[in-house]
Design a protein around this nucleic acid. Structure first.
Lengths: 121, 121
DNA sequence: CGCGTATTTGCGAAAATTCGAAATCACGCG
DNA sequence: CGCGTGATTTCGAATTTTCGCAAATACGCG
């Protein structure tokens, strides 16, 4: 019960868990899904419509997100509602947004450098 | 060039970009590598020793992290030093730890619920 | 039962992972 | 200079995983 501060096995399972979360988000469609869920619950069909994909495909990606515990489902009569299991995922996505912006800026700078490099001085 | 606020194509390529970053971290070994880099620079060989993997394997994973711009390399004589390109990645991993703990608590609660459910009242 | 919505399953193609062997690279030494 | 050594990367091939489509199957409802 009491968690040792430096348990190698715990560390390992924690890394596995983190890897699974990242794996779950390692697809453009699933990222779009999570971003859509930022505002709240969505029915399964809403994804297929918003993303222009087939129901089967949406269901598959949702299954991945479900398996990795990113989203939870709630059946209501005929249809299935999905929502984020833990809103703090939003925080993580926001943090990543800052990361991406920095990275994009860097890439842009590098690109410009390469371009100007080719120019005669 | 000028980025419209809501360009679907831009959104899509941005998601692709994000997916690549997630993909880079979607492996326990690579997560361990990033966590090792929390303290600072490491030589390539240090990873193989700390993680108990073969040099070729470590090099592959480092190449992935390099390609996705997570780490940067610095050659010094015989060996190659790696370091995090952006330390805010650490924040994200820390956030995930809290996420993980919440998840464990939930699983435990659910387990207990199932157990008590089976009990006669 | 019949219908529409969701999910699951089967399958081929593409990508990721791993490992051993071979190739590079920087150094020091005869 | 040529050569051997240690560190790292690259190559090649085998295995595993992921992806997207299509067909089949479940599920709730009238």
């Amino acid at each position: 019960m009491n968690p040792p501060q430096y348990d190698p096995e715990l560390q390992e399972s924690l890394r596995l868990f983190k890897a699974e979360i990242f794996q779950a988000l390692a697809h453009p469609t699933r990222i779009a899904m999570v971003e859509l869920l930022r505002q709240g619950e969505l029915v399964s069909g809403a994804f297929t419509e918003a993303l222009g994909i087939e129901p089967a495909n949406a269901s598959q990606h949702l299954a991945v997100l479900r398996d990795k515990r990113v989203v939870k489902k709630r059946k209501e009569g005929n249809q299935v509602h999905y929502s984020l299991r833990d809103p703090s995922l939003i925080e993580i996505l926001d943090l990543l947004r800052g990361y991406f912006e920095r990275d994009l800026r860097e890439s842009y700078a590098m690109l410009r450098e390469i371009v100007t490099e080719g120019q005669p001085r």
